[in-house]
Amino acid sequence: MKKCNEIGYINKIDTYSTLDGGGIRSVVFLQGCNLRCVCCHNPETWEGGNVQRLTAIELYDKLKTYKSYYGVDGGITFSGGEPLLQKDFLLAAVEVFKKNDINSIVETSANIEIDDTIIQIVKNLDYVICDLKYPDNDMYCRYTLGSLDRTLAFLDLCKGLKKKVWIRTVVIPDINDNEKILARYQKIIRKYPNIFKWELLPFSKLGFGKYEELKIKNPLKGIVDIDNEKFEKLQEKFEFEKAK
């Protein structure tokens, strides 16, 4: 194990979630993100703030007690922020959990440089949840600080490593809530046989309060929630799940 003294900057740990991967999972929200997505739910993870500083071993000690709840499907989800930005810590962490028979997944937008550490991380994961935010670089640039190319490079890496991927896409009113745009995502997804699931998430205003609290300008202020019926239709048409 390398770099086990590496410090992780953690915004929050939620011991219980069933929505961030399969089974019962504890979610570790790592601090820091490079994308500034307009639809972000967790702007508090962007920078600074009250963070816990833990080594991988300390994190493991905190969470090992929940192993009995995880069952075969559950485990740890590293989310954020962008978890891959703290790659040295993350590698140490996923290795510790793996060594102790707790599986880890990462929820990422994958706008990062790929290097050896990232490759090692991916190898140690049960699978990856990857946000496919927008189907082209133009849209990606308009609504985030990142690019589609980087996400695709990461998906190529997973494909090469035969690592299973679960894709998530947030459907935002007036931005990508129509069949025509989603068909373009679909075209990308079909190129990757290692993608076993595509999940659409309805954009929700639940995170809006945080923007005000943090005094961050909310670019989507004034937006309306997505129409339920419309969203369900899109789900029916595009979502899929295959056996892993």
């Binding site: 069933t18 399969g22 089974g23 019962i24 929940y66 009995s68 709840y69 995880y70 069952g71 499907d73 559950g74």
Partner: peptide, 15 residues
């Protein structure tokens, strides 16, 4: 999923 997760929750808690 709800059924699966609830049984794990019970197994975990009682474990």
């Amino acid at each position: 999923d709800q059924i699966n997760n609830l049984t794990h929750l019970l197994d975990g808690y009682f474990g």
